[in-house]
Design a protein around this nucleic acid. Sequence first.
DNA 1: CGGCAGCCATGATGTATGTCAACGGACCCA
DNA 2: TGGGTCCGTTGACATACATCATGGCTGCCG
Lengths: 243, 243
Amino acid sequence: MPPFDLARPARATADVSPCGACAVRPLTVCAALDEDEIQRLAEITQSQRVAAHHTLFSEGDTAQNMYNVTSGSVKLYKLLPDGRRQITGFLFSGDFLGLSVDARYAYTAETVTATTVCRFPRRQMDSLLDEFPKLQRRLFSLASNELAAAQDQMLLLGRKTAREKIASFLLSLSERAVRRGQKSNPIQVPMSRSDIADYLGLTTETVSRTFTQLRTHAAIRLLEGGRVDICDETALMEMTESG
Amino acid sequence: MPPFDLARPARATADVSPCGACAVRPLTVCAALDEDEIQRLAEITQSQRVAAHHTLFSEGDTAQNMYNVTSGSVKLYKLLPDGRRQITGFLFSGDFLGLSVDARYAYTAETVTATTVCRFPRRQMDSLLDEFPKLQRRLFSLASNELAAAQDQMLLLGRKTAREKIASFLLSLSERAVRRGQKSNPIQVPMSRSDIADYLGLTTETVSRTFTQLRTHAAIRLLEGGRVDICDETALMEMTESG
DNA sequence: CGGCAGCCATGATGTATGTCAACGGACCCA
DNA sequence: TGGGTCCGTTGACATACATCATGGCTGCCG
């Protein structure tokens, strides 16, 4: 897999910092900061464009950067020695990644589609955290939210059936699209069946079969371009909650 | 389930605050603070004794307190409407709980054995966080660690076999005992088969069978008092990593 | 003391999901 | 144009684990 390209500086912004024009700012870690502080953050920020299916960093790498996704999508995963894979999360614009323990990443981050990220060097980020308690607080709050999401995912992985898993997955994609200000109904599902399987603890075949099953029951429609139309949200929600 | 008892104030400590004599301090959130700050924290802290199988708080409750376990053991879990349960973690002395999102607990916390906790009222804790950035930072670091543990658990739930799950579970209990300064070898396993099952995404029967299987293969011995002797740690570690 | 309840273990059987295999379509590129 | 690869789908079959059922053990309590 070839190394990703560094972005050239943004061209057509009238703002002193590219952050001024950032569409996803209210969603991200940056929402915590006022203009002066944003400026300081912008100084250590580098925007970066990454093609689909490229690795941002790997499990075990020394954690030199934190990232904010500004467009596109990213998956995070862990591997077992024999190659079995668990995807621990999908990230979209506005999402933050790069928290680490013992200065090493605990997972691999790989783009699903073409993606742009803001990159924050860890060392400089750390001093900003000392300087701006608001930023520290914001990061803490993001981590708490991620933790809650991880607990939901444990419930899903440990106790839900394949149908419930797929239904939960689709509804969660829909919810997150809304939070990003997109419409909820035909949702973009940019990841492959295999990625979905590794996220939900299933196989591609089971994912595929469950999709057709939902389609047969008229709960969803599979559109072109990897989009999914949720025809019967109520039915999906009922599937989420029990047998 | 009867309400738990409030503890009476600690009796036999010469220190101004009970925290001065706290055996688990270096393990906990308190390790971040110097003596003056500890004193401030001690002022808002209440020690509490809770019998086995009592609920500290329930999923959905407004999050009024944070806790530190000083002895005993606690389980955290989430429920599906039909009663299926996923235990998201076991806590032992030194562990912290009570992070929340939207001011509500995302899980239920219930004692496994008789337990003592330090209780911090959330409101007062929040102002201490503002006052002591070190504390804030410490809490952030704890949350990051928990997040990493949650990701490990997702890998376990989504991709490991029953044997690998049990092996990972036992080794992780052993590691944590060491971190608490206890010996690693005969480990205390205070939770029931049913709790273990709900933690690993299995049934009690499968947990039971897998234990006897490991016993038959001379990897472990089941001792009385809920203790488990790890006879062949290497074998367990190999089971953890692959088939 | 006797009976009840909870926990653990284990056997018999069922099933949701995994595995293996084949096929069609999209895309790429020589 | 043709062959290769990747992806998604579907079918036939296998299996790890769940489900159902039983019995032993312990502790509790009337």
